[in-house]
Simulated assay, not measured.
Amino acid sequence: MTSSSSAFSTICILHSLIAITSGTLMMFQMKEIYTFTHGNETATKLMGSTPHDQLLIRTSDSFSGLLLFDIGFLIFMVSFVKDREFQSFFAKGCAVLHVFMVLWRVNFERRVEVLAWVCLRQTVGDILLALSWVLFLVCSWREKYD
């Protein structure tokens, strides 16, 4: 029980750090992130063409970052739960959520021309994050039935 419990805590803390870092960057450094990941030309397109559009996009990015930061904080709190059934339930939910994100990216985001290459990288990231939960479920299943 201790190895799957520590694996759960480790995975939660890793996912929490990723979410908190990404959320913080989205709130405060979105223009720099757009420039770094997409280049100057695409970043300019993504930031909007009018001051009103730019304000709406910055506000949306900030709220999305705040939500991601909050999710990271909640995942950090969940990392301390020791109930094996809850851990399994939570891991299944997170894996399904990441699979839905992959489906969303493949079906919708890849159609946005300026995001096509970024979508591929993010899809790979979502698959890896989902695999971490699946590996936890496999390990806990093996412990349960061995």
Rank of each mutant, 00 (worst) to 15 (best):
A43P: 09
E85H: 04
H52L: 15
M77G: 08
G48H: 04
M26V: 02
R84P: 02
L25V: 02
V78P: 05
L66N: 00
L66P: 06
L17G: 12
L25H: 01
T37S: 04
L68E: 01
L66E: 05
L68S: 01
T44D: 14
M30F: 06
L56F: 10
S79H: 13
I11E: 05
H15K: 03
S79E: 15
F76P: 08
G39Y: 13
L17D: 14
H15R: 01
I33L: 09
L67I: 12
T24E: 05
D70C: 07
L68I: 06
S16I: 15
G39T: 10
V81T: 04
I11R: 05
K82G: 01
D61V: 10
E32Q: 06
M77L: 15
D61Y: 07
K45S: 07
S9R: 13
R84T: 09
F90S: 04
L25I: 02
S16C: 15
L46E: 03
M26T: 10
R58M: 08
F28H: 03
F76W: 15
T59G: 13
S9K: 13
L67K: 09
M27G: 01
I71H: 10
T44P: 00
L74Q: 11
A91K: 00
F69Q: 00
F63D: 05
K31G: 03
T21S: 09
G23Q: 05
